[in-house]
Design a protein around this nucleic acid. Sequence first.
DNA 1: TCATACCGGGG
DNA 2: GTGTACGGTATGA
Length: 823
Amino acid sequence: MRDERLWGWDPTPGIVSVWAEPDGRAWIWRRCDGHLVRERASFRPWIVLSSLDDLAHLGERLVREAPVVADDAVTHQVLEGPGELRYLVRARDGRALEQAVLRGAGRRLGRQLSSLRQVEDQEVIALPPEEQYLVASGRTYFRDLSYDEVHRAQFDLETTGLSPERSRIFLIAVRDPSGGVQILETDGDTDEAEARLLRAFAQAIQACDPDVIENHNLHGFDLPFLVARAERLGVPLVLGRGGGPGPRLRPAARGASFEDGSASTSTGDDADAAAASAGRAWRPRRARYTVPGRELLDSLDAVRRFDFATRELPGHGLKAVARHLGLATASREYVPGAEVHAVFRRDPERVRRYARDDVEEAAAVARTLGGAAFALAKLVPRRYERLGDAGAATGILEPLLVRAYLRAGTALPAHQPSDGTPHQGAALHLFAAGVASRVVKADVASLYPSLMRAYRIGPARDHLGALLALVDDLVERRLAAKARARASEEGSAARHQEEASSAAMKLVVNSAYGYLAAGTLTRFSDVHAANEVTRRGRLVLSLLCRELAARGATLLEADTDGVYFAVPESWTEADERRVVAEVDALLPPLVQLQFDGRYAAMLSHEPKNYALLGYDGELVLRGVAFRSSRAEPFGEAFLRRALARLLRADLPGVQAAYLETIAALRRRALPTFDVTARVRLNKTAEEYQGGRGQRREASYEAMLQSGLTTWRRGAVVRIYRAANDRPAVLPGPPARPDGETAPEGGPAEDPRDYDIEYYERLLRTTFASRLAAGLRPEDFAEIFTDPDQLTLFSPALGELRPILTPIPRAFEGLEEEAPTRER
DNA sequence: TCATACCGGGG
DNA sequence: GTGTACGGTATGA
């Protein structure tokens, strides 16, 4: 398959935005040597149909595709191959084309149709006008442009609340493409003042004329809020280019929800609901705004895409992300959201700094994480802004495949219902529970796409072999991009570009398997091929487990594409790496086992629940058994200390941690805070009282028995068990919902009346029990005995060792390739 | 206690 | 135009 079919063939450089209308008019904005050029183009709108029957009523106006046809003709071209969608149909005006299909289909179905969306998708492919234009022309965004050559502006609203029904915008920070920041403010709390602010904002955007408008949660908050306020105040909000229409809605899965009528479903207090009531016109259920000439990008999408791969972010909020990525400056101003307006009233300068820092950070986060969408826009025939939140399978691979097929003049398959074959997933093996030392983690990078390439597993209906060609090509391009990134200067724009491009390609490559397994959602999905990929994956995992064991490794846990194992004491790190390399050599070509880390010890508790002790002493806890935000702090602290000692085979130390904790409880040396659990009160007092007869819930009983009879829904408090079985609430300020630790209660507020026996029991049953897998039952009983029962004659704990218990028959779960006649 | 439903963000 | 997933938390049987 030729390259150009995969990647577009028209070399036109510098496209920064495309807007097309269904009538075949298109506008293209390009940056040439820094200057903006607007071009007018026309295209012949097209759809693909499974049959021409619905167009038979056109009679002689339906003709074969030809260089010259009548102005009102509808032309068709028959695509080759076995695909069901084989008629490429075009007309001068896409609306007329749609009407013609709807008339025929409506007649056939005996009901009036108003949109091609109502036609079965087995029967039609109909793309948005911009995508029709890009697919047909072979153009893509940003050829020969780098990320920083695109003009980007950021803006951020400061409002009096989250609901545009009840709140106002009082300040807007705008960062222009050259980096200058303007602060626009209202001069009073009136409709007129707010309307003036909105007009000034629209003017500021027009004046700096960006190609891209960005912010964090732009589509979830700022845009819907802005549009709702503008509609309410009767202010025309022209943010696009060419004096065209104001923001338009387009359906988008990840957009804000717009339920017609009144307040929306979930929270009722947010912008989703807000935008809902703003207009009477047709609203899709979920939507995003779009404007001509500018791309509206949300850095929250970039953050989600990034974290999807890395899972390293503490949260997806702007501040948390900026801090995590090292983008927050030392002088960064912070104001809690709920206080922004109040702070503005007494210290406006502080809120101005805050808003300024917000747009600066949004720009920095967008630049740091937005490279993937930018790189994708160079490859995929969709608007840049749609690639910001496009899912990898339907949003990226599918458009590439559709373009490739049409360019090759080949018919496309229709979506197919399942044939009932269940999809089989990955393997998970637990080989041993308990404590192991000298632990190694090895894994196979990009296992599934590697298997697809190695065994040529692609969709049965992909007769062009386009998916595998895409994956092959992307893998090669990615390696080249990574090499170029390494070769370029650290921190340089070139490096940023290559890394972004590499990230984009990795994203697409890794979604190829998901595409296969996506059932009815993707055009070329193939559950048999997907099952073959996972089957090969299980075989590879089994093979490497067996081969590692044969070389002296003690297997602990294996999951999908990675394995933890322990090695004999005599092994050096070089030995560990050598064994991994030996086993790697036995795997199929393109499937590579890599050394992924080594640890002093591991407690294997349950599948996907374990604790690791690094050689540097760092303790890593994985899985729900070891991490819970609700858990009482004293228990968590005990567990961490005890685990660290257990993993060092220091059983007297484990017991000491236990006894010290109990002693502290008995002396009431622990602040009450340390025994509290963090809970959220999701029922109001009335709601709880209503059903109180049937079921008592500790959180609410604690409130009521502490004399607190009203509370806000969603309030977060810390509860504990006081003496005499009394549920109680920790006095003082509640724990902050963002997870920050509540301020320590002073002695006056710290009752220290907790139920000692209850917490001793909790320590044993909930926390100490997490160590049980690593100890003989009699040792466990000995270590976690009642301090009053300690005898002078107990066996010396110092001589005991933690244990590792093989799981019976775990090896039988390993699959082996059925003997076949090999090639 | 275990299953399942829902959330992730913005002022 | 459709579905990200995944880990955590909240809720209900």
